[in-house]
Design a protein around this nucleic acid. Structure first.
Lengths: 223, 223
DNA sequence: CAAAAATAATAGTATTACTATTAATTTTGT
DNA sequence: ACAAAATTAATAGTAATACTATTATTTTTG
């Protein structure tokens, strides 16, 4: 399955970039090293100038791919959600038992990403840390409604919708399936953050405890 | 109760400010108008220069109260959590039934803040919108561990701990009370955001639907 | 009413997040 | 192989940001 995925192109909304970074060597280096650099110094301290220095290229060249660092963040996080979506779709395909399917899906979206899931020039472990630490900054802006209309958040919303469908499959009468789905996805990121920085307000300390917490929460809530 | 609260001083960690804004007229105007201005233009576009212009004061004078706009955000959001905590403590005090107490607490922390809860020079409705849209930016930084040690997040963590205790009162054997408490608080903010901007991935559209969603989620999860 | 404290005004800094222009290099079509 | 086109690099410049430092003025208070 990993080999199959490696040959698939993860699809990110075209409106996010000026020039497709997958179309050139420089573009791929921009993506590869922006993930490493944002993970290292944080999105707030990240600049195209610093990225240019890292990849031995010029600030102005990066601007030919992305209009701003905000768009670059949208690109890499959309890539992440699309990548997770592929994993989720493949892992749940042909699983006939609704509960088993939901549990598999929750495992995928709440797990701690590990090294061996590597894909081309992208470090998914670093990228998953970026999603935990920075994703909400991509929508907590005054421009969110305009950008939402442009389709910058479609992948994220589609993933939540898939999770919602699986919840409804178990109990078609449950009244808050979208809220529960978005709570699981958003909540998992939050628990991963708390585990690293605010240990006293989480019980998720081991690798799979976040997954177990949300599996139990989900199945009990919809029953 | 509101009158009682109006005479109580909401206590914010002293290390957050340079000079106590409650100690002068200028300080109070800084707080009052920073809340209105951040609500209006968003934290990213907010600057001390713009705030100075609004209150007819100088940028440099504001720096005598707060070292940075980040510290100002920590101040007003800590104030908000402390204010919510008072409401929660008063509302649940002397409630003997554990479930009734928890439900009252969930109402307090998940409700949409309304105009009539006004307190001195602070617009709590605007402030609650700021918490929804900006609070996570206060901890999603590379400096979070240092600032956590300085005590900048104590009020928030204490509120979650209070919620956790109430969950444990109902079921002392539940294994993830802290995670559930932090999921409720963080999740409520998230649902309020989705309601305004990403309607398709939430079912919380009316004022009390977020509260009902989390009441049901909590009681089912710990049972 | 003098001293102290608070506030305002002014100026200045390094950095950021870009845009614009031109030059050099690489790719491509014939 | 070579000219044209496209891409990338280099340079310079701008307005805004997030401050610091200094000095002047106003207000408070003992």
């Amino acid at each position: 399955m990993l080999n199959l995925l490696s040959n698939l192109r993860i699809s990110v909304p075209e409106s996010i970039y000026i020039k497709d970074p997958e179309s050139s060597d420089l573009g791929k280096r921009i993506i590869e090293h922006s993930i490493l650099l944002i993970d290292e110094i944080g999105f707030d301290h990240f600049t195209f100038k610093k990225l240019g220095a890292k990849i031995g290229s010029n600030e102005s060249s990066i601007y030919r791919y992305f209009e701003s660092k905000h768009k670059l963040l949208l690109y890499i996080t959309s890539w992440y959600w699309a990548w997770l979506e592929y994993h989720l779709v493949f892992a749940t395909h042909n699983v006939s038992d609704a509960k088993e399917k939901l549990f598999k899906a929750i495992e995928i979206v709440t797990q701690t990403i590990e090294q061996d899931m590597s894909y081309a020039h992208i470090n998914e472990v670093a990228l998953s840390r970026i999603v935990v630490n920075e994703y909400s900054k991509s929508y907590l802006t005054k421009e969110v409604d305009v950008e939402n209309k442009e389709g910058y958040f479609v992948v994220y919303k589609r993933l939540i919708t898939r999770l919602k469908e699986m919840l409804l499959e178990i109990n078609p009468n449950y009244k808050h399936p979208s809220s529960l789905a978005s709570t699981i996805l958003g909540g998992a990121l939050h628990q991963h953050f708390l585990k690293e920085h605010f240990k006293s307000i989480t019980d998720c300390h081991s690798d799979n405890s976040t997954t177990n917490f949300f599996k139990e929460l989900a199945i009990k809530t919809i029953s």
